[in-house]
Design a protein around this nucleic acid. Structure first.
Lengths: 223, 223
DNA sequence: AGTATAGATGAACACCCGTTCGGTTGTCAA
DNA sequence: TTGACAACCGAACGGGTGTTCATCTATACT
């Protein structure tokens, strides 16, 4: 259960403005419009608070997209309900399943394959990421054990070729001809890939042979 | 009444794409996205046709505004109706979260505690179990590593005191004062508890000191 | 034939807009 | 005091995005 009162005054104002703006215009406002309407002078602060709201489950965002905002819950005190956006986001999403992920083969990515099935996920499992950017893979073999992932698990990813420190990423290591899921860190000129298992050692690779295929959003294991 | 057939093929495609895109993303597409989706190579042609559609009363535009488009009528053959029907059928369940599961403490079970939160799950994650019998626990500490479960994972369980061979169960071992998640097998007069990690050894316990608290239905890990 | 008009093309332009980064302030705990 | 952290600011960067323009083709009309 979301608690609207846990948010800061600014964040509540942002949500109300979002709802009003969408109701009036049919599309979301820009960061600068939000800042102007809520008395925030810097676009980075608006951005900062928007990310907080995503984290709290009130919004979802599409990165690098103009007006790439969606409300995912109804906002108390808003003038009208933005019906379409709320309905599209308040229920489950169907995420395309592009096949299986092996240690010994590259990751199937949406650009190269057709989906073979759909996986149903809740909005929380996408962490605010645009559903259109997400895809799913089934894990084959026990080679991902160091990532605490088992045969049969479903991995939900966001398709991307770069990553931030601390992200869990699916990478293809060209020199080893190996796909792996590990935590990503930049370490000087190299890349450190840290297994999720706390007792296992990280590996260090050259960025040139480490191609990122996606960021892991969540993992589902059904027994 | 507008006559949909008076429009050109391209213009009808634009309207259908508009509706699908808005339904999926919650905000309108850009001119270039429309062009790519409808096989128009030049942004100016999209612009041209959009103005035609405005003139015909199908759209309204906000000039010099990114994604400044709105549909003003419903489009025959759009996906909107189908999408809503699918979403309505695929409802989520709210499963109560009864707290955290430690290795060193008994499992919180619905009879003894009040839920502190709800977890949203898809029907598939309950595996056909009555939602009223399901509950959720948050994993604390890395003591469940032998079950391939990490700190922060959410475990969905069905409350029950017996189990079948092959079920993953949450058990309280009285003699060890320990809670654990393992695969359950009857082995003669004893109970065999097999860790999920394939390289770890099973333990054998006396049924008298092994109290089953629930059967694991699924596990969610959000990163 | 000559001409007007609708539709289309590709390129260029200029502003819009999300993102990032270095730095500041205030609060709270050690 | 010191350090860590959340919140905030201002500025700059670079790609996104609507707009405009010169040009071309095809059709219909005079």
């Amino acid at each position: 259960m979301k608690d609207f009162n846990k948010l800061s005054e600014r964040q509540r104002n942002i949500l109300r403005y979002m709802e009003d703006y969408v109701a009036e215009h049919g599309f979301p406002p820009t960061i600068r419009q939000i800042g102007e309407a809520t008395g925030i002078n810097s676009t980075s602060v608006v951005n900062y608070n928007l990310n907080k709201l995503v984290q709290a489950g009130y919004l979802s965002r599409s990165s690098h997209v103009a007006r790439g905002l969606r409300l995912v819950v109804e906002v108390p005190g808003g003038k009208k309900a933005a019906r379409l956006a709320v309905q599209a986001a308040a229920t489950n999403f169907q995420v395309p399943l592009y096949g299986s992920i092996f240690a010994s083969e590259p990751v199937p990515v949406p650009e190269d394959y057709y989906p073979e099935d759909n996986v149903e996920v809740t909005p929380a499992m996408l962490g605010g990421v645009d559903p259109a950017e997400a895809f799913a893979l089934r894990v084959k073999g026990d080679s991902m054990i160091d990532a605490m992932i088992r045969e049969g698990d479903i991995v939900i990813l966001r398709s991307q070729t770069t990553a931030n420190n601390g992200d869990m990423v699916a990478v293809w290591l060209e020199d080893r001809s190996e796909t792996t899921l590990k935590y990503f860190y930049r370490d000087g000129g190299r890349i450190k890939l840290q297994p999720a298992h706390p007792e296992m050692q990280p590996i260090y690779v050259d960025p040139a042979v480490c191609s990122i295929r996606g960021k892991v959003l969540s993992i589902i294991r059904q027994l």
